[in-house]
Computed example of a mutant assay.
Amino acid sequence: MIAIIDYGVGNLFSLSSSLTYLGLDNKITSSAEDILSADRIILPGVGAFSDAVQKLRDTGLIDTIRQQTAAGKPLLGICLGMQLLFDKSYEYGEHDGLGLVPGRVCPIADDLTRPLKVPHIGWNALHFPKPDPLFKYVREGDCVYYVHSFYAKDCTENTIATSEYDITITGAVRSGSVYGTQFHPEKSGEVGLNILRAFSEL
């Protein structure tokens, strides 16, 4: 069973529907017992980092998440859920993340060299600096759907996918059994479904 963590942030229904379409048992939950009994964990998220991390703290699940990932249980953070995995975010101030992946989350606009629209919204191609089983059903140049104004930096060693938007955007990261995708697999058509399928096989 895949536990989708419900902490009041994120489009949980579309994610659950995608997993169900793939025939994957899943449950939207805020229960530590469900997370402990799950085979895999997904941490979704949309909105502002500070609000999301506080809501996650309020659930009392952070220690459970850390314990389960330390034991090797696969976790996938999606969009803001990926950003929460990092050490810090500089979205409207400085905020501590979960510290599961080294790096920091910074504004895209500060690093652009030409006037592109922010947020970065829409389809963009994936590039793979190193092979990873999360992308075993995906090809170089396949496109996924992004919606974000902040991106992960100082995480090259853990970066497993990138996209170009004037600058190199961190598309996906991995640290041990902890994965994150800045894009939304559940909104990325067949490519996204293939990524979720691969996650279920880790």
Rank of each mutant, 00 (worst) to 15 (best):
L43D: 04
L43F: 13
P44V: 13
G45A: 09
G45H: 13
G47D: 09
G47S: 11
G47N: 10
S50Q: 13
D51Y: 11
V53H: 08
V53L: 11
Q54C: 02
K55P: 01
K55Y: 06
K55T: 03
R57D: 11
D58K: 12
D58C: 01
D58H: 09
D58T: 00
T59K: 11
G60H: 13
L61K: 13
L61Y: 12
D63G: 08
T64I: 11
T69C: 02
G72E: 00
K73V: 10
K73A: 03
M82Y: 15
L84P: 10
Y92T: 06
D96V: 00
G99Q: 06
G99C: 06
L100E: 05
V101I: 12
P102N: 11
P102M: 00
V105R: 12
V105G: 03
I108D: 03
D110H: 15
L112R: 03
T113Q: 15
P119L: 04
P119E: 09
H120T: 05
W123I: 09
W123Q: 01
H127Y: 14
F128W: 13
F128L: 13
K130E: 00
P131H: 10
P131Q: 14
D132L: 11
P133F: 04
L134W: 05
F135E: 08
Y137D: 15
Y137V: 05
R139G: 00
G141I: 10
Y151C: 07
A152R: 09
A152L: 06
A152D: 00
K153N: 03
K153T: 07
K153M: 04
D154W: 00
T159V: 14
T159E: 08
I160Y: 12
I160F: 02
T162G: 12
S163W: 10
E164C: 03
I167P: 06
I167A: 00
I167D: 01
I167Y: 02
I169S: 01
G171F: 04
G176W: 11
G176E: 06
G176D: 09
S177D: 09
V178P: 08
G180F: 06
P185Y: 06
E186F: 14
K187Y: 13
G189I: 10
V191S: 07
V191G: 03
